[in-house]
Design a protein around this nucleic acid. Structure first.
Lengths: 139, 139
DNA sequence: TACTTTAATCAGAGAATCTGACTAGAACAA
DNA sequence: TTGTTCTAGTCAGATTCTCTGATTAAAGTA
């Protein structure tokens, strides 16, 4: 079986479950919004960087950040180092979703480790981490 | 780093590259269409099955199959075993894209193997294959 | 200062996706 | 056999996501 599909399936499973857990906990957010939100750094991130990291156009990133802002999950503040730019920052409200997502992720990892074993899980992570070096356009 | 994202990044890299190669070769097809097309079995597959495998609604699958049909990549034939159902089958035209996709996939795998080594590549494949058992709703 | 590049937004359109309602055939129970 | 229920697929309508192209304002540069 094609390794692209082999990667895609568990990748989507993770996305679906984490999103479901976060939504279940009362946070109204979509997958596309989450993908952008996930990339916002601790000190704020520029729209252009978010777009690049999430591999969408600036317009798309802007559209999603607008919604996240309206929902109160991010705020835009001026970038002191560049008058053209603004930094997108996550709000306290969004921070509250982090433990929910982390808990679900931990559950998933535990299930996976249960199924494939601790050794394979470590190997998987190592291989993926290395692949990120050549496949992550942001890294 | 989150294993969901770690899976997502190379998964998308594969999708992007294979789609680009296929489009480059003159096949006009989108990512969403390709995801459905990829799931059509050798003897034809029902719309409902395609929808389930690709994890979209029947309506969405139908919408995409309509487009694939218009473009000549699939055809719908009556299902002899069920008067309500029809089987979606890939046409010869679509079959011609297979070697193009395979060649690009082979290139990607070679690059990856070059970067992470043969052993890790085999371990990766093994781990992913096992994960499919618990994360692929279609399997 | 004038030119070029960059960060972000505006405007408009197209693609992908969904929910809800419907039709026709199949399966099943009385 | 005859209803009743279930299943495969479609129709209608709306929303969400995404893109291309053009514009504005600030920064960098010759």
């Amino acid at each position: 079986m094609n390794i692209g599909l082999l990667l895609f399936i568990p990748s989507r499973a993770v996305e679906n479950r984490i999103l479901a857990a976060v939504v279940e906990a009362g946070f109204e957010i979509t997958q596309a919004q989450a993908r952008v939100l996930m990339r916002v750094g601790p000190d704020g991130t520029r729209l252009t960087e978010l777009a690049e990291a999430a591999q969408v156009t600036k317009q798309t990133a802007g559209f999603l950040v607008d919604q996240l802002e309206k929902a109160g999950y991010v705020e835009r503040v001026p970038d002191p180092s560049d008058g053209r730019a603004r930094l997108v920052r996550v709000t306290d409200k969004a921070q509250e979703a982090v433990p929910v997502a982390d808990a679900e992720m931990a559950r998933i990892e535990a299930e996976w480790e249960q199924h494939i074993g601790k050794r394979r899980m470590a190997q998987l992570r190592e291989a993926l981490d290395m692949l990120g070096e050549i496949t992550d356009p942001y890294r």
